[in-house]
Design a protein around this nucleic acid. Structure first.
Lengths: 108, 108
DNA sequence: CAGTATCCTGCATGATACTG
DNA sequence: CAGTATCATGCAGGATACTG
């Protein structure tokens, strides 16, 4: 939204906008976990060390609102919820993978 | 440092470590600005809209400590300081460029 | 010019307990 | 299982004034 208004600033602030979408402390880890396919809520909690329930919920909601993930609910007892990457989210795979490689080589 | 100790967790936490280095609100914008070559402090301030002096100093220090940028001081009056990317920092160019493209296509 | 030094604020994050 | 609700807190980040 507000595409027109953003046009002047988009070059300068694109990176800032992006951080609003995937700049959260856990966003990339969640996306990274979803590269290997759909995951249930509890699976994500187990896959991502030290993340709190609250943060996982929050980031997932934010990412869903931003069209990065899809939330699918199954009317089972107990409830089942699956999270999947959207196409938009999948496009991040090579980028995050490269970033990860960079980190492993230079940061760790 | 602490390469050995990190080995168990490096796979899981690499992305977290990376965010400590380039996850700051302005880090990527600064790196992005430096892709086009060395910049003086005031140039960076002008190139990056809305960044405060305090934050620019802070991020630059952090990035210097992490081997992303080089700070070169010239004993002139008034003082001249130039910031350049290290090789390690330059390796981020394709990654950040791709991320930027992704943002322009999907976020803006 | 290239910073330092303070003060200040809100939000991001965490911990814990509870629920349909 | 997949969350919600609440409380608590630190520090990221901003504003402003000053300096070698």
């Amino acid at each position: 939204m507000a595409k027109k208004k953003l046009q002047q600033t988009e070059e300068k602030c694109a990176l800032q906008e992006i951080l609003g979408v995937i700049g959260g402390k856990w966003s990339m880890s969640i996306i990274y976990a979803l590269f290997t396919g759909k995951k249930r809520f509890s699976e994500l909690e187990r896959l991502i060390p030290n993340i709190s329930t609250r943060m996982l919920v929050k980031e997932l909601k934010n990412m869903e609102a931003n069209g990065i993930v899809i939330r699918k609910v199954f009317a089972t007892v107990p409830p089942t919820v699956e999270y999947t990457l959207t196409t938009k989210g999948e496009k991040l795979e090579p980028i995050i993978n490269e970033l990860h490689k960079w980190g492993v080589e230079y940061v760790i």
